[in-house]
C-alpha cells in the first residue's frame, strides 16, 4: 500500500461500496439531497499542495515545462542541464504517453531522471509526481524540471505542486497559439519562444505572438531562445538562477 495516499487499497474500498448498494432492499430508502460543494480537481489539488510543501521544505525549485509535442522541450532541457551541471543540483521528471526515450536523453547528461508513462493519459497529475518525488534523488536547494506530456490543453488544469509553469512555443508553430490555447498561456509565468534561429526561413510574426500572449496573460515574461544554436540561452539560465523557490507555508 502507498504510505502517502493509500492508493493500493482503493480497489478493495471501491468494491465494498459497490457491493453495499446491492445489499439494500429496493424501496426501503428514499431519495434525499446532499450538499457537496467540492472542486472536481480537489483531490489533485490536495496532492499538489503536499508536493509544494515537500519541495518548499527542501528549498527545491520545481518548474512544470509545458508545450505542444516537438517544440524542443527535451533539447532545451539537455542544453540547460549540460550548462548548469556542477553549479547546482538538478533532477528531471519526464512525462510521456509511451517510451523512456526522453529520460534516456536526460540521463546521458549525467542528471538523474525518472520517466512517467501516462499510458492513455494526456497529462501528468500531482499524484504521479508525488510518487516520482519519493523515487528520484534530488538534493536540497536544487531545481526539479518536470517535463509534462506534449499537449497545450489538459496540463493547464492540473497543478503538480510546481513553483512556476514555463510554456515553450517554437517559431515553427503558429504565432496565434497563445489565443488558440489560451488556458495554458494564461497559467504560465514564463513563455520561451524557441528555435528562433529558424526565423529567417519562416513567416512567424514575433511581435504578434507576444501581443497574443499578453492578451491572455498581461504579466507573462517572454524569452527568445534557440536551444540548438545557443542564442538566448544565457537569458534563460539567468532566469533560472535568479528565480527563487517559494518559502514553506
Amino acid at each position: 500500500m502507498c504510505t502517502v495516499c493509500g492508493c493500493g487499497t482503493d480497489s478493495a474500498e471501491h468494491s465494498l461500496i459497490r457491493g453495499h448498494r446491492h445489499s439494500h432492499a429496493a424501496g426501503l430508502s428514499s431519495a434525499r439531497m446532499v450538499q457537496i460543494e467540492q472542486d472536481i480537481l480537489g483531490k489533485n489539488n490536495q496532492y499538489a499542495a503536499q508536493n509544494r510543501q515537500w519541495l518548499a521544505e527542501r528549498g527545491i525549485l520545481a518548474l512544470n515545462l509545458v508545450s505542444s509535442p516537438g517544440s524542443g522541450k527535451t533539447t532545451l532541457l539537455t542544453e540547460t542541464l549540460t550548462r548548469l551541471q556542477g553549479n547546482m543540483p538538478m533532477a528531471v521528471i519526464e512525462g510521456d504517453q509511451q517510451t523512456s526515450n526522453d529520460a534516456d536523453r536526460i540521463r546521458a547528461t549525467g542528471v538523474p531522471a525518472l520517466q512517467i508513462n501516462t499510458g492513455k493519459g494526456c497529462h501528468l497529475d500531482a499524484h504521479m509526481v508525488g510518487h516520482a518525488l519519493e523515487a528520484l534523488p534530488i538534493a536540497n536547494g536544487g531545481i526539479l524540471f518536470i517535463e509534462n506530456v506534449g499537449n497545450l490543453v489538459c496540463p493547464a488544469a492540473f497543478d503538480l505542486g510546481e513553483a512556476y509553469k514555463v510554456v515553450i512555443l517554437s517559431v515553427t508553430e503558429g504565432e496565434d497559439k497563445p489565443i488558440k490555447y489560451p488556458d495554458m498561456f494564461h497559467a504560465a509565468n514564463l513563455m520561451i519562444l524557441n528555435k528562433i534561429d529558424l526565423l529567417p526561413y519562416l513567416r512567424f510574426d514575433v511581435a504578434k505572438c507576444e501581443e497574443y500572449a499578453r492578451r491572455v496573460n498581461p504579466t507573462i515574461q517572454i524569452l527568445h531562445v534557440s536551444a540548438t544554436s545557443g542564442v538566448g540561452i544565457g537569458g534563460w539560465l539567468d532566469w533560472l538562477i535568479c528565480v527563487k523557490p517559494p518559502v514553506p507555508a
Binding site: S29, S30, A31, R32, M33, V34, Q35, I36, E37, Q38, D39, I40, L41, A157, P178, I179, P182, D183, H186, Y212, R214, R215, V216, P218
Partner: peptide
C-alpha cells in the same frame, strides 16, 4: 474567451474572476 478585450474600454488588462469553476454542487442520493 480569455483573450477578449474589455467590452467597454478595449483594454486587455482583465483579471478573470468567474468562469474557471469545476465543482460538484450537490447530489440526489438514496
Amino acid at each position: 474567451q480569455r483573450y477578449d478585450a474589455c467590452p467597454h474600454c478595449g483594454s486587455y488588462q482583465l483579471q478573470v474572476i468567474q468562469g474557471d469553476e469545476m465543482r460538484i454542487k450537490e447530489l440526489e442520493v438514496k
